[in-house]
Amino acid sequence: MTIELNRVNFAHAETPEKPVLAIDHWSLSAGEQVFIHGPSGSGKSTLLNLLSGLLECRDGEISVLGARLNTMNSRQRDKFRANHIGYVFQRFNLIPYLSAIDNIELARSFSARCADRPTLRQTEDLLCSLKIEPSEWTRPCSRLSTGQQQRVAIARSLVNRPEILIADEPTSSLDQANRDNFMSVLMPLLADHKMTLIFVSHDLSLAQYFPRVQALDEISEAI
């Protein structure tokens, strides 16, 4: 299994009496693409933060790519995340004053996997494969169109060749056309790279793109 959760209970430190997630068992195979939906504030982002090691789980077991996140310290989890997990954010979360190349290179700088490779060339190849014109590479991201920002965000999440891609409501601020465009770019790339995808959204219309669809309340009993 690529991801496996057993008897995971999580509550925020401020409200220990109010569990956010209570997962008895949940798993995901290599290359599987799952769509998790649920209302806002239901704990979707918390689940993603636990899977990426941003949040520490003290109760239960979280195994990702065979590594037990529970047994790692903060620094080890940071390194693990940089090396194995790609992330696409809500509103893409690009640094507006950096260029497309710099935004992508930023993700490379924390990963040990790409340290011995010619970095810039690989980034440029990625931008080419995502059909971003070379003239746009060095422009600040704030001056790129929504469609271009989507592609840069996808390029950033893929640049370290992660085994797992996490998408946290990446289409929530997009209109129908941009949303469809985003999915049409993302899904073939994942198939090509045989990546495991966890896609979280409250928008059920996106479920059509995924072979596996789960509501969060099917995964966690705390809701």
Partner: peptide, 14 residues
């Protein structure tokens, strides 16, 4: 806040 979150997710230690 967004920048901090981004850097943390990308693997930047505190």
């Amino acid at each position: 806040d967004h920048e901090i979150h981004l850097l943390r997710v990308l693997g930047a230690p505190p």
